[in-house]
Simulated scan of single mutants.
Amino acid sequence: MALRSDNTGFGSITKSLHWVMAALFISVFAVGWYMDFLPLGMAKLEWMSRHKSLGVTVLMLAVLRILWRLYEPTPAALGKHSIERLAAKLGHLGLYAVMIAMPLTGWIMSSAANFPVSVFGLFTLPNLVAPDQGLFETLRTAHFILSWAIVVLVLGHVAAALKHHFIDRDATLRRMLPASGDQDGDIPASNTAKENS
């Protein structure tokens, strides 16, 4: 499998980033909701630290993924209708936006609360703003709203991939699967027969 994507399929680096980001999204969301139900204490603080570390990892990988996407060609969307291709583009832009905005609001929120962000105990990020309780509350609300925006965007992304796979029967989902060599034109023979009949 090629490292880089081309006009007909995704490379192994893009696929790896995609699935690692997916796993991180689930982990950050799960840890975030779990820690919210814990009473204030050492256990909650430890889970908050894990949540922040994972969030910073998401931010770093999101920046890397955006730079990588700008560097290499991207296979064309396989939607049959222009509205589908537009929706796919807007959905991807939305996901990139929340991948950046979500951890940034968390980082600034921690700064406003005067709690520096330690990343897995390896290094500590600088505070981006001075302590400010009002700003902290505003950012906490924004962070919460963004968490649900991520849920909506990810569910939409998954639903679209499944629709392409099971209804349109094109290679949209297959070409993002690990170790898949499927290209845009790989359509099951049964579909080709239907189209020719």
Rank of each mutant, 00 (worst) to 15 (best):
A2C: 04
G9W: 03
G11A: 10
S12M: 07
I13C: 04
T14K: 13
K15G: 08
M21V: 02
M21H: 03
A22I: 00
A23L: 15
A30M: 06
V31H: 00
P39M: 00
K44Y: 10
K44S: 05
K44H: 14
W47T: 07
K52P: 01
L54R: 07
V56Y: 05
V56E: 02
V58I: 14
L59K: 02
L59H: 05
V63D: 01
I66C: 05
W68K: 02
W68L: 03
L70V: 08
L70D: 05
L78G: 04
L78H: 01
K80I: 04
S82H: 11
L86C: 03
K89D: 09
L90R: 04
G94N: 03
Y96P: 09
A97W: 00
M99P: 00
I100L: 15
A101V: 04
L104W: 11
L104E: 11
T105Q: 00
T105E: 01
T105L: 00
T105G: 00
T105R: 00
I108L: 10
M109F: 03
S110K: 02
S111W: 10
A113E: 06
A113P: 01
F115E: 03
F115W: 06
F115K: 05
P116K: 06
V117C: 02
G121M: 07
T124Y: 03
L125Q: 11
L125A: 07
A130I: 05
L135E: 07
F136A: 14
E137Q: 12
E137A: 12
E137R: 10
T141V: 14
A142N: 10
F144W: 14
S147C: 08
V154H: 02
H157N: 12
H157Q: 11
A159T: 11
A161L: 14
A161G: 13
K163R: 15
K163D: 04
K163I: 05
K163A: 07
F166C: 04
F166H: 12
F166L: 09
R169T: 01
A171K: 03
L173A: 07
R174D: 15
R175Y: 13
M176F: 09
L177P: 05
G181T: 15
A189P: 04
S190Q: 11
N191S: 10
K194Q: 15
K194Y: 14
N196A: 15
